[in-house]
Simulated assay, not measured.
Amino acid sequence: MAADWSEENTRIIVELFVKQVRMGNRPNTHLTPSAYEEVHNEFKMRTGLSYKQAQLKNKWDKLKNDYNMFKKLRLRETGGGWDVEKNTVKQDPEWWKKAAKDIPGCGKFRKQGLRNEEGPRVMFEDITSDGTDHWNPSSGVPPPSSAALPNVLDIDAIQDLDNENTEDQAIPSDEGASGLTQKRLGKFVHDGSKKPKTALVMQEQITRIGDIAERSQSSFESFIKNDDTTSVKSVMDAVLECGAEEGSDEHYIATELMARRDIREIFMHMTARARKSWLRRKYDDKYSK
């Protein structure tokens, strides 16, 4: 039968996909066959609908495409024209017309942005690319080692020594002996009238690259240190420590809630004694109606 991806069914399937990703059942760009089987069974239990694995995969691909498209759309808007209520770009028709040429299909987000955005972010953020190579500490991803090279290494400033005049240069000897010369070997000239020689340029550029790499590494390590207390692993360890054992209702609702950083921060701010009862109430609020 044809799949019915209503807003509610989409919300449920995203929850189930996120659960499998958090369990480590997405080794590459898709879930494992056994993970799809679990999604199928739980989706059927909650909705009464039985979809084939191919239909679930198609929905996964559709969600990934929408997330990547919306991510590019968000990055395109740099002028502050963002409608917070609708979670989408607030611009005139001409802007959207140009955007549609660069990001085919993005017009679907003109009236309403991506729904359930937090779920697709967990599912796809580390396996999608917006085409940029820029990095900042909030991304949680260190810069690629080659990112600094194009802006640092000035190839035009480098000269091949094979093309230089390598004839010995004669200078008066220290004794001032007539007709005698000394050879100046390995001496590189670098003044305003000549381009810098290869060795000196390379040394300068390598030093600059090293400085940039050191600063980037320092920033990244600082970010990791500060973020560790609210990482998914740290928070889920705290979930177990408060008595919410795997397989319990409290642990299940935690796997859904802790995908959001703000929820993780709230949870870690609670006393250890209050955490389990809070998870219980969250589960009851959602599933005991």
Rank of each mutant, 00 (worst) to 15 (best):
N58A: 11
P27N: 08
G105P: 09
K19R: 13
L240P: 02
S231M: 04
S218A: 15
M45R: 15
G48R: 01
S234D: 03
H190R: 08
G243P: 04
V39K: 03
S248Q: 09
Q217R: 14
L200Y: 03
R261E: 11
E125R: 12
K289S: 10
G131R: 11
T88A: 10
R280F: 05
M236L: 09
K183R: 15
A148S: 12
E77K: 08
I171D: 10
D92T: 08
N136A: 15
K57Y: 03
E246I: 14
E125G: 03
E8Q: 05
S178C: 12
M258H: 02
Q91E: 15
R46D: 02
V141Q: 10
K111I: 05
L153K: 02
K225E: 13
D191I: 03
S234G: 00
K108F: 05
K108E: 14
D61E: 14
S50R: 04
R121T: 09
R184P: 02
M1C: 06
E164R: 05
G113E: 10
D133K: 13
E214I: 08
N151K: 14
K101A: 15
W82P: 03
F70K: 04
K90Y: 08
M202W: 01
T47I: 03
T271E: 08
T181L: 14
N41E: 12
H190M: 02
W5G: 01
G210N: 15
H251N: 11
G140M: 00
G48S: 04
R11N: 08
E250D: 02
A199N: 05
R281W: 03
T198G: 02
K72T: 02
D133P: 02
M270I: 00
L180Q: 15
Q112A: 13
R11S: 10
K194P: 00
H269F: 07
G105Y: 10
R26D: 07
C242E: 02
H40C: 06
W278L: 01
V189W: 01
F43E: 02
E241Q: 13
P33C: 03
K64G: 06
F70M: 06
S218Q: 14
Y67V: 04
T255A: 01
R281T: 11
R110G: 01
Y283W: 14
W82F: 14
Q182N: 15
